[in-house]
Design a protein around this nucleic acid. Structure first.
Length: 258
DNA sequence: ATGGTCGTTGGACGA
Protein backbone atom coordinates (compact mmCIF):
# COMPACT_ATOMS: atom_id res chain seq x y z
CA UNK A 1 0.00 0.00 0.00
CA UNK A 2 1.40 3.35 -1.06
CA UNK A 3 0.06 6.53 0.50
CA UNK A 4 0.41 9.76 -1.46
CA UNK A 5 -0.28 13.01 0.40
CA UNK A 6 -0.42 16.70 -0.40
CA UNK A 7 -0.16 19.55 2.12
CA UNK A 8 0.16 23.28 1.71
CA UNK A 9 2.23 23.98 4.83
CA UNK A 10 2.48 27.78 4.50
CA UNK A 11 6.20 27.95 5.45
CA UNK A 12 8.22 24.79 6.07
CA UNK A 13 10.30 26.71 8.60
CA UNK A 14 7.29 27.26 10.85
CA UNK A 15 5.57 23.96 10.12
CA UNK A 16 8.49 21.49 10.22
CA UNK A 17 7.59 20.17 13.70
CA UNK A 18 4.03 19.54 12.52
CA UNK A 19 5.19 17.83 9.34
CA UNK A 20 7.44 15.55 11.39
CA UNK A 21 4.61 14.79 13.83
CA UNK A 22 2.17 14.12 11.03
CA UNK A 23 4.37 11.81 8.93
CA UNK A 24 5.25 9.82 12.06
CA UNK A 25 1.63 8.61 12.24
CA UNK A 26 0.31 9.03 8.68
CA UNK A 27 3.46 7.50 7.13
CA UNK A 28 2.92 8.60 3.52
CA UNK A 29 5.33 7.08 1.01
CA UNK A 30 5.16 10.33 -0.93
CA UNK A 31 4.39 13.74 0.54
CA UNK A 32 4.01 16.78 -1.69
CA UNK A 33 4.40 20.15 0.00
CA UNK A 34 3.40 23.58 -1.24
CA UNK A 35 4.21 27.11 -0.09
CA UNK A 36 7.45 26.07 1.55
CA UNK A 37 8.46 29.76 1.32
CA UNK A 38 12.18 29.19 1.39
CA UNK A 39 15.17 28.85 -0.88
CA UNK A 40 16.47 25.32 -1.45
CA UNK A 41 19.52 25.85 0.76
CA UNK A 42 17.34 26.56 3.80
CA UNK A 43 15.04 23.56 3.35
CA UNK A 44 15.34 21.22 6.39
CA UNK A 45 16.72 18.26 4.41
CA UNK A 46 18.63 16.77 7.34
CA UNK A 47 15.66 16.68 9.71
CA UNK A 48 13.47 15.04 7.06
CA UNK A 49 16.16 12.54 6.10
CA UNK A 50 16.43 11.64 9.77
CA UNK A 51 12.68 10.92 9.61
CA UNK A 52 13.30 8.57 6.68
CA UNK A 53 12.51 10.84 3.75
CA UNK A 54 14.48 11.80 0.68
CA UNK A 55 13.80 15.39 -0.44
CA UNK A 56 13.35 17.06 -3.83
CA UNK A 57 13.03 20.81 -3.42
CA UNK A 58 12.02 23.63 -5.77
CA UNK A 59 12.04 26.74 -3.62
CA UNK A 60 12.43 30.50 -3.79
CA UNK A 61 12.72 33.34 -1.34
CA UNK A 62 9.59 34.43 0.59
CA UNK A 63 6.87 33.06 -1.70
CA UNK A 64 5.62 29.84 -3.28
CA UNK A 65 7.98 26.87 -3.45
CA UNK A 66 7.20 23.14 -3.59
CA UNK A 67 8.89 19.93 -2.47
CA UNK A 68 8.39 16.18 -2.69
CA UNK A 69 9.41 13.87 0.16
CA UNK A 70 9.70 10.16 -0.56
CA UNK A 71 10.44 7.03 1.37
CA UNK A 72 9.83 4.78 -1.63
CA UNK A 73 12.02 1.92 -2.87
CA UNK A 74 12.74 3.92 -6.02
CA UNK A 75 14.80 7.06 -6.23
CA UNK A 76 13.13 9.85 -8.19
CA UNK A 77 14.08 10.23 -11.84
CA UNK A 78 13.10 12.55 -14.70
CA UNK A 79 12.68 15.52 -12.35
CA UNK A 80 10.97 18.56 -13.87
CA UNK A 81 10.78 21.87 -11.97
CA UNK A 82 8.64 24.06 -14.25
CA UNK A 83 6.00 23.83 -16.93
CA UNK A 84 8.22 23.32 -20.00
CA UNK A 85 8.41 26.42 -22.15
CA UNK A 86 6.79 28.67 -19.55
CA UNK A 87 9.26 31.32 -18.46
CA UNK A 88 8.07 31.79 -14.87
CA UNK A 89 10.25 32.88 -11.93
CA UNK A 90 7.59 31.56 -9.50
CA UNK A 91 8.45 28.10 -8.24
CA UNK A 92 5.16 26.20 -8.40
CA UNK A 93 5.89 22.85 -10.04
CA UNK A 94 7.83 19.71 -9.23
CA UNK A 95 7.43 16.40 -11.05
CA UNK A 96 9.30 13.14 -10.65
CA UNK A 97 9.00 9.46 -11.52
CA UNK A 98 9.13 6.73 -8.85
CA UNK A 99 9.23 3.33 -10.50
CA UNK A 100 6.25 3.28 -12.90
CA UNK A 101 4.51 6.14 -11.10
CA UNK A 102 4.71 9.70 -12.39
CA UNK A 103 3.94 12.34 -9.73
CA UNK A 104 3.25 16.02 -10.41
CA UNK A 105 3.14 18.43 -7.45
CA UNK A 106 1.49 21.82 -8.08
CA UNK A 107 0.98 25.10 -6.32
CA UNK A 108 -1.54 26.70 -8.66
CA UNK A 109 -1.62 30.53 -8.57
CA UNK A 110 -4.19 31.95 -6.16
CA UNK A 111 -5.54 34.52 -8.61
CA UNK A 112 -6.12 37.28 -6.05
CA UNK A 113 -9.33 38.74 -7.52
CA UNK A 114 -11.41 37.99 -10.59
CA UNK A 115 -10.34 40.39 -13.32
CA UNK A 116 -6.93 41.15 -11.80
CA UNK A 117 -3.57 40.59 -13.48
CA UNK A 118 -2.97 37.71 -11.09
CA UNK A 119 -6.27 36.14 -12.16
CA UNK A 120 -5.25 36.35 -15.84
CA UNK A 121 -1.90 34.80 -14.90
CA UNK A 122 -3.73 31.96 -13.12
CA UNK A 123 -5.92 31.15 -16.13
CA UNK A 124 -2.99 31.33 -18.53
CA UNK A 125 -0.91 29.15 -16.20
CA UNK A 126 -3.71 26.56 -16.06
CA UNK A 127 -3.99 26.50 -19.86
CA UNK A 128 -0.26 25.89 -20.15
CA UNK A 129 -0.51 23.25 -17.45
CA UNK A 130 -3.20 21.43 -19.41
CA UNK A 131 -1.03 21.19 -22.51
CA UNK A 132 1.90 19.90 -20.47
CA UNK A 133 -0.20 17.34 -18.57
CA UNK A 134 -1.53 16.02 -21.89
CA UNK A 135 2.07 15.22 -22.81
CA UNK A 136 2.82 13.79 -19.37
CA UNK A 137 -0.20 11.50 -19.58
CA UNK A 138 0.87 10.27 -23.01
CA UNK A 139 4.32 9.44 -21.63
CA UNK A 140 3.19 8.13 -18.23
CA UNK A 141 -0.15 6.25 -18.05
CA UNK A 142 0.25 5.95 -14.27
CA UNK A 143 0.03 9.64 -13.44
CA UNK A 144 -0.91 11.33 -10.16
CA UNK A 145 -1.32 15.13 -10.09
CA UNK A 146 -1.62 16.67 -6.64
CA UNK A 147 -1.43 19.99 -4.93
CA UNK A 148 -3.08 23.21 -3.91
CA UNK A 149 -5.19 23.94 -7.01
CA UNK A 150 -6.77 27.05 -5.51
CA UNK A 151 -10.04 25.97 -7.15
CA UNK A 152 -13.13 24.49 -5.50
CA UNK A 153 -14.51 22.21 -8.24
CA UNK A 154 -18.23 22.52 -7.42
CA UNK A 155 -20.61 24.31 -5.08
CA UNK A 156 -20.68 21.29 -2.76
CA UNK A 157 -16.99 22.05 -2.10
CA UNK A 158 -17.81 25.53 -0.75
CA UNK A 159 -19.31 26.41 2.65
CA UNK A 160 -21.40 29.30 1.34
CA UNK A 161 -21.84 28.90 -2.42
CA UNK A 162 -24.17 31.89 -2.73
CA UNK A 163 -21.76 34.16 -0.89
CA UNK A 164 -18.81 32.87 -2.89
CA UNK A 165 -20.51 32.86 -6.28
CA UNK A 166 -18.26 34.30 -8.98
CA UNK A 167 -15.35 34.91 -6.60
CA UNK A 168 -11.79 33.80 -7.12
CA UNK A 169 -11.31 30.10 -6.23
CA UNK A 170 -14.84 29.25 -7.43
CA UNK A 171 -15.40 31.32 -10.60
CA UNK A 172 -16.63 29.52 -13.69
CA UNK A 173 -13.48 30.10 -15.80
CA UNK A 174 -11.35 28.57 -13.03
CA UNK A 175 -13.70 25.61 -12.71
CA UNK A 176 -13.66 25.15 -16.49
CA UNK A 177 -9.85 25.12 -16.41
CA UNK A 178 -9.93 22.39 -13.76
CA UNK A 179 -12.48 20.38 -15.76
CA UNK A 180 -10.17 20.69 -18.78
CA UNK A 181 -7.50 18.91 -16.73
CA UNK A 182 -9.96 16.17 -15.72
CA UNK A 183 -11.05 15.82 -19.36
CA UNK A 184 -7.53 14.71 -20.22
CA UNK A 185 -8.35 11.49 -18.38
CA UNK A 186 -7.87 12.34 -14.71
CA UNK A 187 -10.23 11.73 -11.79
CA UNK A 188 -10.68 13.68 -8.57
CA UNK A 189 -9.79 10.81 -6.24
CA UNK A 190 -11.72 12.29 -3.31
CA UNK A 191 -14.94 12.01 -5.31
CA UNK A 192 -14.32 8.35 -6.06
CA UNK A 193 -15.27 7.68 -2.44
CA UNK A 194 -17.28 10.59 -1.04
CA UNK A 195 -20.21 12.44 -2.64
CA UNK A 196 -20.98 14.58 0.37
CA UNK A 197 -20.91 18.34 0.61
CA UNK A 198 -19.03 20.16 3.36
CA UNK A 199 -15.66 18.41 3.01
CA UNK A 200 -13.01 21.11 3.06
CA UNK A 201 -9.21 21.29 2.89
CA UNK A 202 -8.66 25.00 3.51
CA UNK A 203 -10.06 27.46 6.03
CA UNK A 204 -9.14 31.14 6.15
CA UNK A 205 -7.17 32.19 9.23
CA UNK A 206 -9.56 35.07 9.72
CA UNK A 207 -12.97 35.22 11.39
CA UNK A 208 -12.55 31.85 13.15
CA UNK A 209 -13.27 30.11 9.85
CA UNK A 210 -11.99 26.71 10.99
CA UNK A 211 -13.92 26.76 14.27
CA UNK A 212 -17.07 27.56 12.26
CA UNK A 213 -16.09 25.06 9.53
CA UNK A 214 -16.28 27.72 6.85
CA UNK A 215 -13.91 26.22 4.32
CA UNK A 216 -13.33 25.23 0.71
CA UNK A 217 -12.02 22.03 -0.86
CA UNK A 218 -9.19 23.33 -3.03
CA UNK A 219 -6.43 20.73 -2.45
CA UNK A 220 -6.74 17.73 -4.73
CA UNK A 221 -5.27 14.39 -5.72
CA UNK A 222 -6.04 13.63 -9.38
CA UNK A 223 -5.38 10.14 -10.70
CA UNK A 224 -5.17 8.85 -14.26
CA UNK A 225 -7.72 6.30 -15.47
CA UNK A 226 -5.05 3.59 -15.33
CA UNK A 227 -4.67 4.21 -11.58
CA UNK A 228 -8.30 4.61 -10.49
CA UNK A 229 -8.64 0.90 -9.81
CA UNK A 230 -5.56 0.95 -7.60
CA UNK A 231 -6.78 3.96 -5.61
CA UNK A 232 -8.42 2.62 -2.45
CA UNK A 233 -9.20 5.78 -0.48
CA UNK A 234 -8.81 9.54 -0.35
CA UNK A 235 -9.39 11.48 2.85
CA UNK A 236 -8.78 14.93 4.25
CA UNK A 237 -7.07 14.89 7.64
CA UNK A 238 -8.48 17.88 9.51
CA UNK A 239 -6.55 17.10 12.69
CA UNK A 240 -3.42 19.20 11.95
CA UNK A 241 -5.62 22.19 11.08
CA UNK A 242 -6.73 22.14 14.73
CA UNK A 243 -3.21 22.16 16.13
CA UNK A 244 -1.52 25.20 17.68
CA UNK A 245 -0.17 27.59 15.01
CA UNK A 246 -1.48 25.54 12.07
CA UNK A 247 -1.21 25.89 8.34
CA UNK A 248 -4.45 27.19 6.85
CA UNK A 249 -4.62 23.94 4.80
CA UNK A 250 -5.21 20.35 5.90
CA UNK A 251 -3.31 17.46 4.33
CA UNK A 252 -5.11 15.23 1.81
CA UNK A 253 -4.00 11.62 1.57
CA UNK A 254 -4.82 8.87 -0.95
CA UNK A 255 -4.01 5.17 -0.64
CA UNK A 256 -2.97 3.01 -3.59
CA UNK A 257 -2.59 -0.72 -4.07
CA UNK A 258 0.84 -0.35 -5.65
C1' DA B 1 -17.87 44.99 11.80
C1' DT B 2 -16.93 46.31 3.87
C1' DG B 3 -13.08 43.80 8.68
C1' DG B 4 -10.87 39.72 10.25
C1' DT B 5 -5.08 36.54 10.48
C1' DC B 6 -1.04 34.59 9.20
C1' DG B 7 4.17 34.43 7.15
C1' DT B 8 7.88 36.93 5.51
C1' DT B 9 9.78 40.86 6.58
C1' DG B 10 11.47 44.76 8.78
C1' DG B 11 6.74 48.20 5.35
C1' DA B 12 3.77 46.17 2.80
C1' DC B 13 2.37 42.27 0.13
C1' DG B 14 0.43 37.84 -0.76
C1' DA B 15 -2.89 34.51 0.59
Amino acid sequence: MLKIATWNVNSIKVRLPQVLDWVATARPGLLCLQEIKTVNDNFPVQELEDAGYQCQVNGQKTYNGVAILNRTPHDPVDIVDAIPGLDDPQRRVLAATYGDLRLVNLYVPNGSEVGSDKYAYKLDWLARLRDWLAEELARHPQLVVVGDFNIAPEDRDVYDPEGWQGSVLVSEPERAALRALLDLGLRDSFRLFDDSAGQYSWWDYRAAAFARDRGLRIDHILVSEALTGACKSCVIDKVPRGWERPSDHAPVIAEFDL
